[in-house]
Design a protein around this nucleic acid. Structure first.
Lengths: 350, 350
DNA sequence: CTGTTAGCGCGTTCAC
DNA sequence: GTGAACGCGCTAACAG
């Protein structure tokens, strides 16, 4: 139970050789005779030698560590993302340094600076609340960085990125409702200023336009939140009634949590889903499949996004050229959406 | 955009002083004149100097890093746990190295050895599938380690731990059902060989005994799973009918996922919850409050557990004596449980 | 107050 | 094949 771990010099002394011989033996250098090598390896084993990654890093100029910053680890969205990241990182022998920003710009910058301080080999950033100011702050640094689900339009040259095609996702959701016969389709959104929010709305509008369906400002309800004082479920709850009052038969929600809120509001108001109203969410969080009725939604495949992002980082390490990725979401049909015709039998007033 | 970061020697050269003067100035040593200190700090700022944590660690023999191994990061249970850990770690200026074991013993050991290799200051382990063999493997190491929610009976002297009082939790759940008038109370469990499972069952039995209520082997249904081939929801689904057939009016489920599975089975079988059957879960995962009906459950406060574990580690760093913690869970009453009297009005056959 | 020196543990020339 | 010597970037001991 000695306090300080033993070093290659300790085992060198024990073996009666120099520390560099030990170093070489342990790294299978061809310069070492097989006999001596095995002897030293055996000795190292006996002495419970554990190489010191810190010392190696100082020498190699590589830490085999990547920093990951997410908004919140407790958020299942980011949990799955990190799972995907971790999986390919582990396979590549890399470690993850994890940090949460809680959507706070100061904490985000602090996390990134901390990663530089610790000399990570690369950085992955998945924080949708990132500010524009950002680019300025990070330009001086030279660590390979991949942005996940972050608007990168004006920083394409500097940062690499992988993101979900939110516009396509919005279209998929709305096209689904259109196919089911809906003609008055609403959008229930959260105005958080994110690119995702803007693009999902665009997808909604695009699908309606392409189908030659009417659009109505009353069918679009967006709750603008300044801070995080209100959660998405409450937003969905709060905004639902006014949308229903506008006469929509189907609603595309900004994300699953909003949709769940809307669903809860429906229950309180006596509105049957999907008979009276079809709901489509976005994200495909685990909750979506267990709630009643199970939620039709657009899946983001967060773990795949994590895998792609980490793989991209690995390619950057190898000096390969990488292209920004735009992942395609896909629709997951469940019971919260159905044909509009059924609705007529159970029309309710709001 | 220089490739290698600048060091204190670079700025020393620029300032015409020695590197140790720079080192002292940056660390606010009282040995340095205020004028020189400010000058150097300003210069460092201009040169975009970022201290090298690796070099510092080699010198300090401290990495200000703790390793965390969980079963799965995507699991909301562990997500919340890590959130709690991260929160107090950040406050203490410590970083988190995260690793997932996926319930695999090999991966778990590999993760821990990797943490030793990287010279973390401490380790937190939250993997319920840990084997007994474990103790042997880790004894030679000397890194402060705290086990989270792991049976530590035979290793109390070596490891520190924080865990939930599962026995109490089981009692709380069953006492709740008893208060509601239930007299035939079942237990729906998963036989994963964990201490948690055993203790929750004990709590169940204890509560019944204390209330002088009868016990019936048919009321206890435990699904033994060898591997992870089947998830908890499916287990709940599969096992429910036989329990209901035994005549119970209330069921305490091993965890929320099992309870959710039971709930889904009830829907398929036309059993109304809570009118026909009361269900109580364990864990209080987010899903529990959103499902219909919202699930009465025992809350584990995972984030608090993370905070406590990390705090314990901090105290170990300071050489303080620490006591193993047994956290008390508490009941969260929701709509999945109600008085047994109601049931009579809507009896159904199974 | 400041400069010089010596490690922290390891990998890597450069000699022998 | 092997050992001696240097450096990775930084802190701390010892001089002045």
């Amino acid at each position: 139970m000695s306090k300080r771990k033993i070093s290659i010099e300790d085992i060198a002394r024990q073996a009666g050789v120099s520390h560099s011989t030990v170093s070489r033996a342990l790294r299978d250098s061809p310069l070492i005779s097989a006999k001596v090598r095995e002897e030293i390896k055996k000795l190292a084993q006996e002495m419970n030698y554990v190489p010191n990654a810190i010392a190696q890093s100082l020498q190699n100029q590589r830490t085999y560590t990547v920093g990951v910053v997410v908004t919140s680890i407790a958020d299942p969205f980011f949990g799955e993302l990190v799972e995907g990241i971790e999986q390919v990182a582990k396979q590549a022998g890399l470690n993850l340094l994890l940090s949460a920003s809680h959507g706070d710009f100061e904490q985000e910058i602090a996390a990134i600076e901390n990663f530089h301080y610790r000399r990570v080999d690369g950085i992955l950033i998945a924080d949708s609340r990132i500010s524009k100011h950002y680019t300025q702050q990070l330009t001086p640094f030279t660590v390979p960085t991949v942005l996940i689900n972050i608007d990168t339009e004006d920083k394409g040259e500097i940062f690499h990125s992988v993101a979900i095609d939110d516009r396509l996702g919005g279209s998929l959701a709305v096209e689904h409702l259109i196919k089911l016969g809906h003609r008055s389709i609403g959008y229930l959104g959260v105005g958080d200023g994110s690119k995702a929010e803007q693009q999902r709305l665009e997808g909604y509008q695009m699908a309606l336009t392409q189908a030659g369906l009417p659009q109505n400002p009353d069918w679009v309800a967006i709750f603008h939140r300044d801070k995080e004082t209100i959660n998405d479920i409450d937003i969905g709850k709060k905004m639902l009634s006014q949308l229903v009052a506008s006469g929509v038969t189907g609603i595309f929600c900004y994300n699953d949590m909003v949709a769940v809120g809307a669903l809860l509001a429906c229950k309180e108001l006596g509105i049957s889903v999907p008979q009276d109203l079809s709901l489509v969410g976005f994200d495909n969080i685990a909750l979506a499949s267990y709630i009643t009725p199970p939620l039709t939604t657009v899946s983001q495949r967060m773990s795949e996004m994590g895998e792609v992002a980490m793989t991209m980082l690995l390619e950057l390490f190898q000096g390969k050229p990488v292209e920004n990725q735009l992942l395609s979401p896909f629709l997951v049909k469940r019971a919260s959406s159905t044909t509009v015709s059924k609705r007529k039998h159970s029309r309710i007033s709001v």
